[in-house]
Design a protein around this nucleic acid. Sequence first.
DNA 1: CGGAGAGTTGAGAAACCTCAAAGCAGGTGG
DNA 2: CCACCTGCTTTGAGGTTTCTCAACTCTCCG
Lengths: 241, 241
Amino acid sequence: MQTASDNPCLRIACSSCNLRELCLPVDLQGSALHRLDALTSIKRPFRRGEYLYRSGEPFRALYAIRTGFFKTQVLHENGREQVTGFQMPGEIIGLDAISSDAHSCDAVALEDSEICEIPFDQLEELSRELPTLQRYLHKIMSREIVRDHGIMMLLGSMRAEERLAAFLLNLSQRFSARGYSPSSFHLRMTRQEIGSYLGLKLETVSRTLSHFQDHGLLNVRLREVEIMDMLRLRSFVGTTA
Amino acid sequence: MQTASDNPCLRIACSSCNLRELCLPVDLQGSALHRLDALTSIKRPFRRGEYLYRSGEPFRALYAIRTGFFKTQVLHENGREQVTGFQMPGEIIGLDAISSDAHSCDAVALEDSEICEIPFDQLEELSRELPTLQRYLHKIMSREIVRDHGIMMLLGSMRAEERLAAFLLNLSQRFSARGYSPSSFHLRMTRQEIGSYLGLKLETVSRTLSHFQDHGLLNVRLREVEIMDMLRLRSFVGTTA
DNA sequence: CGGAGAGTTGAGAAACCTCAAAGCAGGTGG
DNA sequence: CCACCTGCTTTGAGGTTTCTCAACTCTCCG
């Protein structure tokens, strides 16, 4: 599984997310700085279950998650649904909407959250003046493509145990990168949502978690996860990284 | 399955690919035009089986396919492989490399081909001056993300028959958009490559194709495909589009 | 305290994979 | 120009994984 958006240097410029200094060049002029701040000044709270956007809505802005947890999902006309990602603070969503000037998926808050809205026209305008910001935006989009390739590999060639191990390790790493425990965390999503993301049924997710617990790899109780044997969990995915 | 890169207006500016006039604004100054032409002037032929780039190589350029057929694949350390896409003339590859300044997958010619190399530094520079080009580049990247989401849905929630039907319909549409027959075409890839792309074993691909043929949906003989009942094939995927 | 949503577990069914054998096509070298 | 060889494709039989359907428990909230 990819580690997209986990590099702190790749987070969007957003002073109020404490991220500006992580990704911006030192040679910015004062006015550019102010405009960048202005670009990231629109904040909005979301309650659990609220939609940030829905498929089909016109595209106006990208969104940086300041706090909270989101999922993105694609709904097929025949009722099928596919969760395409779970997003944490510091990650950007809405990139899929650029292609057609309309959102192609839904974004739903999985817990009370706060987002930072970034009007895309202005972001493009500013990135024409700031090559570093421009390159940064391209990297963000490219990261998303690489992340999706990782999920395609997961869905296309891994078995249930491997998928779930990869999923948990990915969460672990992203929590860790944000200063939280890599071994003990709270799942914000249901078994059904995990299953949709991993191409499995919720019963299979539940069974596989129980199976991991039986073998001493981790403890699960509802949405609380404690990884007991990170190395052995990694060996499931065939990666030592 | 997504129709990424099939909109002629979204193809890269590349005069020698006859695409410049399809996507460029009328208000370009002469010098900008010349620079754009210069940007897309590097051409290179490839023989079947040759690598355009390999995972790990430094990132320098994007590539527009002029003629031929490519596949991109991710290789996992434990020998697993995942084909992430099949690319036809007018489509751009290499976007995944922007994120880390190194290619994250391999690109291999599936038949003798010609590509157009687009140095990325220069593309970024020019796109800072030409907002239309800038937006175009962003749309290209966003399309790739939307396309990947479509494949995730396919891999995550469709059965073998649906996956293969979606795959064939996608090829059909892309051939059609390029002026070829939508119902009769030549597959450039092996059953194994189709299987890797669709998350199936090659025997399952072969069996499912035979199954389609038995039911009068299409005729297959090796790599020659003739779709006999497009509507019924569509009904497998649950889409009428 | 009760209800609804979420999670667990079991048994049987279905889909897909694995292993194996045989047929074909196309390229290469004699 | 032909024969062979290699890689691709097809098809079958049996095994494994995952799904489906169902029942039951648990937790959280009102």
